[in-house]
Design a binder for these strands. Structure first.
Lengths: 163, 163
DNA sequence: TATTGTTATACTCTATAACTATA
DNA sequence: TATAGTTATAGAGTATAACAATA
């Protein structure tokens, strides 16, 4: 019977209320969801700091980048591409429009919709922010080799893009 | 991703306000953070459904599982292991205690702390829930081979566990 | 003086119902 | 009738400050 390595072992033979020295997370670490969430939070934390100078949250960055690469994209299309709900996009777009980064133009062939476009200032901000984001990717190479990073992204895509 | 077919754009050479047919997300898909978040959300969505019969959210599952594998663990230790803040754990523990899944016992060697333990009902629930969770892992094998899953988890750990 | 658990509270994120104008 | 954008609002998740009891 192994002796317990506690600061003050119980003096009697009664059952003892246990306490924990080192936390055992080994079971949770076998689960994909646990690891994916922890990793996502970790990466997003770094991303948040890097985007602070541009005053962009991850979702703002995603919106601006999609508008940059898809000029004329509609709110609805943005929502379905990013998994956000229409009511929650309105405020973001209002803020980005107030900062004169995006503008809402009438859609050429659908009177209900608005096409989204970057202003010149928006174009420049996105260029700079995307440059910073891509440098951040390279910086991950301190932990992961380029090959590992490529593999990781490929496997992540397999998870959320069932093809 | 819905692919809405809009009326054909006018074929003139004049300056035209563009619209978007197919959304180009290729730049965002080069970023680790974007892929990690999408994958985490996708996995957690499935996990949520699987845990619904047990009335456990992912965080409840994590808490119960850690208590199961670390009987006597304190609130503070749970918080640091799971990255949650003490004030936000209180309500969860109250709810789990009310459901008679966990009990707070006085800590054997620290009068300020409470040691957390599972009730017999909690033990059974965790056993069943962990079984379901592990079966879910195997189910991912429909998209990923066991080797790919192992690689993915290894790389995710490298991201959030800098060693 | 520092730490554990706790309360109160605020802020962000996400979700639902309903309205308007156009299709 | 259905869809795009919007408003209002509710709920969940996450954050900080401060307090009592104990170390």
């Amino acid at each position: 019977m192994p002796r317990l390595r506690l600061p003050r072992p119980p003096a009697n033979g009664a059952r003892e209320v246990p306490s924990v020295e080192t936390i055992d997370s080994s079971y949770l670490e076998t689960l994909l969801g646990y690891n994916a969430r922890r990793a996502a939070l970790s990466v997003i934390e770094v991303f948040l700091e890097a985007m602070a100078p541009y005053k962009l949250r991850p979702v703002d960055f995603s919106v601006l980048s999609l508008v940059a690469h898809n000029p004329g994209i509609t709110s609805r299309q943005l929502c379905s591409a990013l998994g956000i709900l229409p009511p929650n996009l309105v405020g973001m777009l209002n803020a980005l429009e107030k900062r004169e980064l995006v503008s809402r133009l009438p859609h050429p062939r659908d009177g209900r919709a608005m096409g989204l476009h970057l202003t010149p200032g928006g174009e420049k901000l996105v260029r700079d922010a995307e440059k910073t984001a891509s440098e951040l990717e390279a910086g991950v190479a301190g932990r992961l080799s380029p090959a590992e990073l490529k593999t990781l992204i490929k496997l992540l895509k397999k998870i959320y893009q069932p093809d």
